[in-house]
Amino acid sequence: MDAIFLQILNGLDKGGAYALIALGLTLVFGTLGVVNFAHGALFMLGAFCAVTFQKLLTISKQVKDESITFFDAFKEQPYLEIWFGDFGTTIIDYSVPLSILFAIPVMLLVGLIMERGLIRHFYKRTHAEQILVTFGLAIVLQELIKSWFGANPIPTPAPEIVSGSAPVGVLLGMGESVVYPWWRLIYLAFSAIIIAGVFAFLNLTTFGMVVRAGMMDRETVGMLGINIERRFTIVFGLAAVVTGLAGVMYSPILPPDYHMGMDFLVLSFVVVVVGGMGSLGGAVAAGFLLGILQSFASMNEVKSIIPGIDQIIIYLVAVVILLVKPRGLLGREGVMED
């Protein structure tokens, strides 16, 4: 029972990450009709926003180490600590959550530049060409990051206070053996908030209404005198921010390295396809579904029956869904039909 509860929690947590990553991809596809293979690169850039912010906070100065008295020893001390003392240390400790504030403007800018500079010129070209050019862009971004930050993963720890495990079992009265890492719970809550935020933005605001109208019929909206192009640019920026934030929050779970984007790209495409291209609800549903399926597939009991199932379950589900239900779980009619 405990094991199953843990697996469900694990699945929800994984699913939250998948849904969050796929959300931006499907948003771009649903509004702009662009297949963006550079989406994984955006995720990676988000994670590296956290890295950069942490590096900025810990810019250090060499000071004399007072604790060693035999000889002159020096140590690196961040300026923040020198200036603000303990408060500075706290800020550095919270660098990952704080870097959200840093990542929002950066990712927005990246998204806007990308849409204006490149994606816009590919609206009218074939999907194959869109895939190819964004694939090229993904390589370029990834290699730039590699030449700047090196090839090794850079650890970006979560704040001290949430680095341990949460006694979920005790809180829910299920026994003390049930524990779960705090940060993963935070990630789950965070992705729920962001997903809800995006849905609220699209469904409750006038801006969102126009964007939804544009998704349905771009020409008519244009004829009503609305500058739909500009709104789409903003939507792309928004998608970049959502993806980037997913990356920022993921950095304590997986130390960022330059090729993490490519690893997540395939996954996010699978989620989007399973959910139905261009369907936001579908992406979220598929994200959670695949997350839970995967965490159950990696249970030892299941693995002993079908060896290797944990490695391929996601792709297997994608293949089955595509063959049985070509539009995906919640795909709309007329989007990317054969």
């Binding site: 297949v35 999907h127 895939i131 395939v266 495409f269 699978v270 396809v273 291209m277 290797g308 490695q311 391929i312 792709y315 297997l316 994608a318 293949v319 595509l322 063959l323 070509p326 990317m336 054969d338």
Partner: peptide, 19 residues
């Protein structure tokens, strides 16, 4: 399937083989 779905299907199979 054709178009992007074909690409994703082949991608999925390749990833399965790799994993």
């Amino acid at each position: 399937r054709s178009g992007i779905y074909f690409s994703i299907l082949t991608l999925a199979f390749a990833q399965m083989s790799y994993n």
